[in-house]
């Protein structure tokens, strides 16, 4: 087709690349700093003059590092799994059914996003303490098992799922959970993937609550462990950068894993929205 080759098609990637490289600059600097040591840390070159792995070796030699990394991974994955399941279930319910109290439940769940976590930490800690959740994975995870953010996101996306499709299933005698898990869910895969990415990032980077609820150094999550490099009015910046660079890797991996779903989009065939 003729329409395939407009000047915009050439211009678009070029502009996107230029902008993208600009976006990348601070990130690249972070990576570069992680390969610097001593006074080089404060030199402004983006390419290290004397590149070194010493910072990485230093972090890996910390006997607690594997714990921190694994803890974060376990917490991030488990919470994400829970969020994906419950948030999409509640989002589906709030979008596809009419029942008494629906609106108020929606607003109440939304309202959980309106309180800063910092204010909830103390009651959570008292609770954890009484139930012996301190220094357990469950203790770190429980506040995040469901989220107002994810529920809202899924509700919005389920609204684009055509009602007739579900009704067709009902006529075939499928139960509601089946409709949810086998018919509705595949249609909102892009949103579900986005939620998976955000949920994992949010929990991977969570700092305040994991700090409060863990006393044992082996129960720390990665961000809490890495904050050991911030000292008294001074930080070991090359170590902070190295830690941050390492912390990016699993997140990036999760991103790559799920983003394909977003790109593929949905092959909605024969249904009117």
């Amino acid at each position: 087709m003729k329409t395939n080759y407009k000047p915009i098609d050439v211009l678009r990637p070029v502009i996107l690349i230029i902008l993208g490289l600009l976006m990348l600059f601070p990130f690249a600097w972070m990576i570069a700093t992680s390969f610097k040591q001593g006074r080089d840390v404060f030199s402004l070159s983006i390419i290290p003059e004397n590149p070194t792995f010493a910072n990485y070796l230093n972090i890996f030699s910390n006997s607690n590092f594997p714990f921190w990394f694994l803890n974060s991974l376990i917490v991030g994955l488990a919470v994400t799994a829970s969020v994906l399941f419950f948030d999409s279930l509640v989002g589906f319910t709030l979008s596809k059914y009419s029942f008494r109290g629906k609106k108020i439940i929606f607003i109440l769940i939304l309202s959980t996003m309106m309180i800063p976590t910092e204010m909830l930490v103390i009651p959570w800690y008292i609770m954890s303490n009484e139930l012996h959740w301190v220094d357990t994975y469950w203790g770190v995870m429980f506040p995040g098992l469901m989220s107002g953010f994810g529920t809202f996101l899924m509700r919005q996306f389920f609204q684009t799922v055509p009602e007739d499709l579900l009704d067709a299933g009902r006529i075939d005698g499928l139960n509601e959970f089946y409709l949810f898990s086998r018919i509705a869910i595949p249609l909102v895969k892009p949103a579900l993937s986005a939620l998976a990415i955000f949920s994992f990032i949010g929990n991977w980077n969570a700092f305040m609550w994991p700090l409060i609820v863990s006393n044992k150094v082996t129960m720390y999550t990665l961000p809490v462990g890495l904050s050991f490099f911030n000292g008294e009015f001074q930080s070991q910046w090359e170590m902070v950068m190295t830690g941050a660079s390492i912390a990016t890797i699993p997140v990036f991996f999760i991103f790559i894993l799920f983003q394909r779903q977003i790109i593929q989009g949905i092959a909605l065939t024969g249904v009117k929205g």
Binding site: A78, A81, W133, T136, Y137, W138, G139, M141
Partner: peptide, 11 residues
């Protein structure tokens, strides 16, 4: 989720 429950109990 079950796994996490087990860990919690272990703790």
């Amino acid at each position: 989720i079950l796994f996490s429950q087990v860990l919690f109990a272990a703790g």
